[in-house]
Design a protein around this nucleic acid. Structure first.
Length: 265
DNA sequence: AATGACAACAACCGCCAGTCC
DNA sequence: GGGACTGGCGGTTGTTGTCAT
């Protein structure tokens, strides 16, 4: 017995995706949808595992994704959510539109975790680390979940303000990481990847200026396969957010901010 | 200039839950 | 009810780029 592997291991390519593969996958999904991921590679002419196709699509090729590092507000939100939800990256990602669980997980492991440790906060429990573990840190400041060393309330308020507008201009992310030299790679608008993506989307799918991915997929996914349309998938985070209480994470209007802060304490 | 160490991120792997038959 | 199958999740690894020496 035993379950069938997700793909035929023989002849399946691994490793980084090429531009050609990306284009094939995007073209296929946008024209046919993904009836079942297992069938996608075969139908799309890819020598890839279906799972790999799904990951590539959800983590990298989806048109509604933001690119680049998380900005200050998003980072603060991730910390807040992690304190409440733990390593449930998909749940956290659901509350950050345009971000993927993988992206957030990576960002957590490479940036936030270190920041918290540096500040004397245990990234797992979000409690101050023991003194001996952080000899030259200041636990009293650390306990405030504040990445920037600001005062707690101020930080949360700032977070709230920024989250509300964080979809507006992802390019401003650079400003928040002026000290992070690694930024230049992923945020460089002239990077090969971005060029590729913009080419793919403009060349292949954006000819029609009224193009909207959710709309384009609605018939395919919803009609043919009874799946959620992407627009509905995109709004799933909002539904979750509403479940937890409007404005709970600083996404609500300013009148909720007081309560928001209370919740976050 | 070479190279080793480190950082960042993309991708893979194994497991699990849900669904179908 | 239970096996087969799929999609999703979280942990981990591999690859690539950058920095320091």
């Amino acid at each position: 017995m035993g379950r069938q592997p997700c793909c035929d291991k023989l002849g399946v390519k691994k490793g980084p995706w090429t531009a050609e593969e990306d284009k094939k996958l995007v073209t296929f999904i946008l024209t046919h949808g993904h009836c079942c991921w297992r069938a996608v590679p075969k139908l799309a002419g890819l020598r890839r595992c279906g799972k790999s196709c799904r990951l590539r699509w959800t983590n990298y090729l989806r048109p509604d994704l933001k690119r680049g590092l998380l900005n200050e507000a998003e980072e603060q939100l991730v910390i807040d959510l992690h304190a409440r939800l733990g390593n449930r990256w998909s749940k956290i990602a659901a509350r950050l539109p345009g971000r993927t669980d993988n992206e957030i997980k990576n960002h957590w492991n490479t940036h936030i975790k270190k920041k918290l440790i540096k500040m004397g906060i245990d990234p797992v429990t979000h409690e101050p680390l023991k003194k001996q573990e952080t000899s030259d840190d200041k636990p009293e400041a650390a306990a405030k979940f504040d990445v920037n060393g600001e005062q707690e309330g101020e930080a949360v308020n700032k977070s709230s303000e920024k989250v509300g507008s964080m979809n507006d201009n992802s390019s401003s992310q650079n400003e928040n990481y002026s000290t992070d030299e690694s930024n230049s790679r992923s945020l460089d608008p002239n990077s090969d990847d971005d060029l590729l993506m913009s080419y793919m989307w403009s060349e292949t799918f954006l000819d029609d200026t009224s193009w909207s991915f959710p709309a384009a997929c609605r018939e395919i996914e919803y009609g043919e396969f009874g799946r959620l349309s992407s627009s509905e998938e995109n709004s799933a985070w909002l539904m979750d957010y509403q479940e937890l209480g409007e404005g709970e994470f600083g996404l609500g209007n300013s009148s909720n901010e007081k309560d928001t802060n209370a919740v976050l304490m």
